[in-house]
């Protein structure tokens, strides 16, 4: 049983112990797992280095086994390079980063499930370019990953991080919520700010169903990583602007579970409803099988 089951408790623990949120997440986990803080830190640094490595090694020529995905991040990169992109360099690179990681996952490259393989693009797509833009050292990004993990573990405890249980809101929604809080850490926000950003991000993604074409983690999963990453940036920016969520994070997580429980099974990773049931998706399935 986790030492905290709500963001409220996590912030209280952090205050009581006089440690920052990231450190509280790390120490509570170390106590629970019988892990030394050094080993934990090194393991987390390892997660960041896998994210960086895979992002760097993206190859636009690679295609997934199904042939459904690959190459789109390359198109986005070309578009950015052409100077025609309407969004600024940061937002453009968030979009490209999410596509890169999502495609790497589909093409059987090494990724960090965060919190799942299908949503693995959100955190790196937000943190890598934002850390670069802010010029923060790696230590700070590793700290931010602890913040993300703390939020994610509360979501997993109170709701779910599984598409089969609660739909895509539990995967991309959770990843977005985690990334929003992590970005607030990079921006120097408080624990309350992190909770606020986590709430804002997930609120916007409630109800998102899990309807993968052919049951594969490709369509629409890869592009939903873009959505999750962009929403995370927006939630962190709104938070730093002083905008407050009327519903606290823990209640948003509970609402996500409620929505998930009411979601029809055909919309929870069964590859039946939604986009998976569209004529084009069904035609794709015939080709593949």
């Amino acid at each position: 049983m986790s030492a905290y089951t709500s963001v409220k408790e996590l912030l209280e623990l952090s205050e009581k112990r006089g440690t920052p949120v990231w450190r509280t997440v790390q120490l509570m986990d170390c106590e629970e797992q019988g892990l030394s803080p050094e080993d934990s830190w090194n393991a987390m640094a390892g997660m960041l280095s896998v994210m960086r490595q895979t992002d760097r090694d993206y190859d636009r020529r690679h295609r997934s086994l199904s042939g459904l995905s690959g190459g789109d991040a390359g198109k986005m990169e070309d578009y950015i390079a052409s100077g025609r992109a309407l969004s600024g360099p940061l937002i453009s690179s968030v979009i490209a980063g999410a596509l890169r990681m999502g495609e790497c996952n589909a093409c059987m490259k090494r990724i960090v499930a965060a919190p799942t393989a299908g949503a693995c693009g959100v955190l790196p797509a937000v943190l890598l370019p934002c850390a670069g833009r802010l010029g923060v050292p790696d230590e700070r990004v590793i700290e931010a990953l602890y913040v993300a993990a703390g939020i994610g573990s509360v979501i997993a405890t109170r709701a779910s991080i599984s598409g089969a249980e609660c739909g895509c809101q539990a995967e991309i929604g959770s990843a977005s919520s985690m990334a929003a809080a992590a970005l607030v850490h990079l921006l120097g926000g408080t624990g309350q700010d992190m909770a606020n950003a986590a709430a804002l991000a997930l609120k916007a993604l409630l109800g998102l169903v899990c309807d993968p074409v052919g049951g594969l983690v490709e369509v629409p999963c890869i592009k939903r990583n873009v959505l999750g990453a962009l929403e995370a940036v927006a939630a962190a920016e709104m938070t730093m602007a002083g905008i407050r969520s009327r519903i606290p994070a823990d209640e948003v997580f509970d609402a996500m579970r409620d929505v998930g429980e009411k979601m029809d099974a055909s919309l929870r990773e069964t590859g039946e409803g939604g986009l998976a049931g569209s004529p084009s998706a069904l035609k794709q399935g015939e080709r593949e099988v």
């Binding site: 997660m47 090494r110 990724i111 960090v112 499930a113 393989a117 990953l145 993990a149 573990s153 490709e218």
Partner: peptide, 21 residues
């Protein structure tokens, strides 16, 4: 849930259940 169940595992994609498992 422990921290490295949320961030991790490091795995070859695309699916934790259908590939890593």
């Amino acid at each position: 849930m422990n921290v490295f169940d949320i961030l991790g595992p490091v795995m070859v994609g695309p699916s934790s259940s259908h590939t890593a498992g």
